[in-house]
Amino acid sequence: MELICPAGTPAAFREAVDAGADAVYCGFRDETNARSFPGLNFSRQELREAIAYARRHGTQTFVALNTFMRAGDEEIWYRAAADAVALEADALILADFGLMAHVAERYPEQRLHVSVQASASNVDAINFLVDAFHAKRIVLPRTLTIADIARIAPQIRCEIEAFVFGGLCVMAEGRCSLSSYATGKSPNMNGVCSPASHVRYRQEGTELVSELGDYTINRFPAGEAAGYPTLCKGRFDIADSPAYAFEDPVSLDVMGEIDALSAAGVSALKIEGRQRGKAYVAEVVSTLKKVLSAGPEQRTALLMHLRGLSEGQKTTSGAYEKRWR
């Protein structure tokens, strides 16, 4: 199975290639991708150099253009697609139908992958994208069990890429406006979730308080592992009792299930984390590469090693396991 690795900077990109990534995915330094964070991502020139570096090492480069085109400003996304094609990206990862249609029509030879943000969670949805836009691969939403994937795989006409490690969207991806409800900025429109511009941390006595816009997202007592200030992993009051309403600060790890995923028909394993540092990318990619060639009995020990890097220092199988629902 291919290992698809994240890179937010050229330095992280090289680490991913050096650590043995089969493909690295990245985006331009603007709102055309869903990790449009300050200081992150690639200029055209940086992407040109990154693709050349990857090619020398036999690694593929996927370019994420996975936000939804803002009405009236479609040209920004079209230009990004044209540039990525011209730079010979091995695949474009798209979410917006309008952009998919544009790419399928203008660049019929360009390999098109469907982003997780498109939210294609079943056979008919996936085959619609294959038929309408000639998609070659679908990145599955983190809403399916491994059994669901096994059922879907033989009925669809494209490859399957599945998230196995890193951040976990609790909500169906590409269909969440929680962030813009609190801050005015959303993954779909602005390429950011719970944007740094609206995050505040303050120490209140012994508690670390995180706030997003006008809202308190969490209060961490001293010594408790913290998480990102994302709404779906905040602690809230429901019927007067404080709890994680949707999910704890935790991240995804289903590397222990790679045999089952492979048997289910998954051909590419995706690591989340373009916003993470190059040290993280190097550590995670090299470890997961080892996991792929290790026997089942050695995997657990290898994976334990990564837990400390995770949000809340905890991991979950998420929706891949039925009980999570």
Partner: peptide
């Protein structure tokens, strides 16, 4: 959702607010 979109191809239908239509090219498609 996208499955209904795919299956309804060629038949007159409506699109609900839970499908991502953010621009005119998508609406025209």
């Amino acid at each position: 959702d996208l499955s209904a979109l795919g299956l309804l191809n060629g038949k007159p239908h409506s699109i609900g607010p839970l499908v991502n239509v953010y621009n005119a090219p998508t609406a025209r498609l």
